[in-house]
Simulated scan of single mutants.
Amino acid sequence: MVDLSPARQPREADARPVPFRGGGFAPGRNRWAGLVVFVALIAFFEVGTRTGVISSLTMPPPSAVAQTLWRLVETGLLWQNLGPSLYRLAMGSLVGCGAGILVGFAIGLFTLARAGLVPLVSALFPIPKIALLPLFVIWFGIGEGSKVALIAFGTFTPTVVATFGAVDGVDRGLIRMAQSFGVPWLRIVTRVVLPDALAGILSGLRVSLAIGIVLLVAAEMLGARYGIGAYILEAGALYDLERLFAGVVILSVLGLLVSAGIGALERRLLRWRG
Score class of each variant (00 low, 15 high):
Val161Gly: 06
Gly145Lys: 08
Leu186Ser: 12
Glu144Ala: 14
Val2Tyr: 12
Gly227Val: 05
Ile232Asn: 07
Val193Lys: 00
Ala106Trp: 05
Arg191Pro: 00
Pro134Ser: 13
Glu74Phe: 02
Leu94Lys: 04
Gly154Trp: 07
Leu198Arg: 03
Pro128Glu: 08
Gly263Pro: 01
Gly100Ala: 13
Ala246Val: 05
Leu4Trp: 13
Thr49Asn: 06
Trp272Tyr: 12
Pro128Lys: 07
Val248Phe: 12
Val73Asn: 04
Leu86Asp: 00
Arg187Cys: 01
Thr190Met: 06
Val73Leu: 15
Gly274Leu: 06
Ala235Leu: 08
Asn30Trp: 09
Glu74Arg: 14
Leu109Phe: 10
Phe156Arg: 07
Gly100Pro: 01
Phe181Met: 13
Val193Glu: 00
Val37His: 11
Leu265Ser: 09
Met1Asn: 06
Arg21Pro: 02
Ala13Leu: 12
Thr163Leu: 09
Asp3Gln: 08
Met91Cys: 15
Gly261Thr: 13
Phe245Lys: 01
Val192Cys: 00
Ala166Cys: 08
Ala40Asn: 05
Gln179Phe: 03
Val249His: 04
Gly141Trp: 08
Ala218Pro: 05
Glu74Ala: 15
Phe105Val: 09
Tyr239Ile: 14
Thr155Met: 10
Tyr87Thr: 12
Pro84Arg: 04
Val253Asn: 04
Val47Asp: 05
Gly223Glu: 07
Gly165Ala: 12
Gly200Gln: 01
Arg225Ala: 13
Arg176Cys: 01
Val73Ser: 06
Leu135Trp: 13
Ile142Glu: 07
Pro184Met: 03
Asp3Gly: 11
Glu220Ala: 03
Gly34Val: 09
Tyr239Gln: 13
Pro158Tyr: 10
Val73Arg: 07
Gly261Arg: 05
Tyr231Met: 14
Leu77Ala: 14
Arg273Val: 03
Arg191Val: 02
Leu209Gly: 02
Arg172Phe: 03
Val65Lys: 00
Gly212Met: 04
Ser203Trp: 00
Val207Ala: 11
Leu269Thr: 02
Val47Gly: 02
Arg114Tyr: 08
Arg243Gly: 05
Tyr87Arg: 14
Pro119Asp: 11
Glu46His: 11
